[in-house]
């Protein structure tokens, strides 16, 4: 059970953070279909950053610090990359779906192109390095080991630092968008930018802010994904996680709480589809692998998350409410 919750958290965190990223962009009025691309770009730059940091013995010894720095690098690079989207959407008044699609193509192209030129490989694997004490320091496994009983074990044994950082970010940003002046202004720009402008809000500035926060979060989520779920391999893909996060954002009705529920549900189902052979219940002191014993192919479990989301969307779509002005370039004259 503890094992299941731990694994669910690992899958949930990237989805949660990236869906929140989507929410920030769309609430400010910019459709961010480029989440997937920004994740790829962030994860790639983060991985390169970590790779370079590990050339210094100090950072090999201090694994947790390297991990946090790499997350930071990924977030910054994601924010910078997202400027391409906001520039085309705000300054060039381009179609945001097209701009996003271009970024989704651009990110893997850049990542793979550079990985192949500089590393002569198709993928960048973050191999374990030996620290000064002669211990192997695994790259991806930045784990806090702790022997707390039960509840404490869920969060502190074999947990990734990124989990805690992500949860903190989630709480802070959820409060920020609902309880602060800037958050209110940002939301106004996604609903009725002309009305917002009429009371003196700089719509373009707000939209740049929303998209940049979105880019930083997506970059963070991208690195969190490759460092935890993908075992530290950057290969120009995040297995469609960005698109799934987009789906979760719509599923969560563009609200933080809904997004958290959606990410948990999807993360849980996705997690089951990966670890179902290892799931067991102990009956009469005997381990029973109940899902493995069903003898269903893994494809069946892979299908479940997607089908579930479709069914839930069909039932909940009636009260689904997208930000009104999303996708429409801001035009002062349309008042």
């Amino acid at each position: 059970m503890i094992f299941l919750i731990q694994k669910t958290l690992i899958f949930t965190i990237p989805l949660l953070i990236v869906a929140l990223a989507g929410m920030y962009a769309e609430r400010s009025g910019i459709i961010n279909i480029a989440l997937d691309g920004i994740m790829i770009f962030g994860s790639f730059v983060g991985a390169v950053g970590a790779f370079l940091l590990r050339k210094v013995p100090f950072f090999v010894d201090h694994n947790q610090l390297t991990f946090i720095l790499a997350l930071l690098i990924a977030a910054i690079s994601g924010a910078l990359f997202s400027l391409l989207l906001s520039f085309s959407a705000i300054k060039l008044k381009a179609d945001q779906t097209i701009g996003g699609t271009a970024l989704n193509m651009l990110a893997p192209a850049i990542a793979l192109f550079l990985i192949k030129v500089f590393f002569k490989m198709d993928r960048l694997e973050m191999t374990p390095a030996v620290n000064s004490a002669g211990q192997n320091k695994d790259f991806s496994f930045v784990i806090l080991n702790n022997d707390m009983p039960d509840a404490g074990k869920v969060f502190f044994d074999k947990a990734y630092l990124s989990t805690f950082i992500a949860i903190a970010i989630y709480i802070i940003l959820s409060i920020f968008i609902y309880k602060t002046k800037t958050g209110l202004r940002l939301r106004a720009c996604g609903e009725h930018p002309q009305a917002a402008a009429s009371v003196g809000i700089d719509v373009n500035k707000m939209r740049y802010l929303g998209t940049t926060i979105s880019g930083a979060l997506a970059g963070f989520g991208g690195y969190a994904y490759i460092a935890t779920v993908a075992n530290g391999t950057a290969e120009g893909t995040v297995a469609g996680m960005g698109f799934l996060a987009l789906a979760i954002m719509i599923f969560g009705n563009w609200k933080p709480l809904g997004i958290a529920l959606g990410a948990l549900l999807f993360g849980f189902l996705k997690c089951v589809s990966v670890i179902y052979p290892q799931l067991s219940v102990t009956i009469n002191g005997e381990k029973v692998f109940f899902l493995k014993n069903l003898n269903l192919p893994m494809y069946f479990y892979n299908l479940i998350p997607y089908v579930t989301v479709l069914i839930v969307l069909a039932f909940t779509s009636k009260r689904s409410r997208a930000p009104k002005a999303e996708g429409i370039p801001y035009d002062k004259g349309m008042r």
């Binding site: 391409l84 085309s88 060039l92 008044k93 381009a94 179609d95 945001q96 097209i98 701009g99 699609t101 271009a102 970024l103 193509m105 651009l106 893997p108 192209a109 850049i110 793979l112 192109f113 192949k116």
Partner: peptide
């Protein structure tokens, strides 16, 4: 991978 890169930039511009 330079060709998907070029194509992506073309699409980026075509948005405008």
């Amino acid at each position: 991978y330079v060709s998907p890169l070029i194509i992506a930039v073309i699409i980026y511009f075509s948005g405008a």
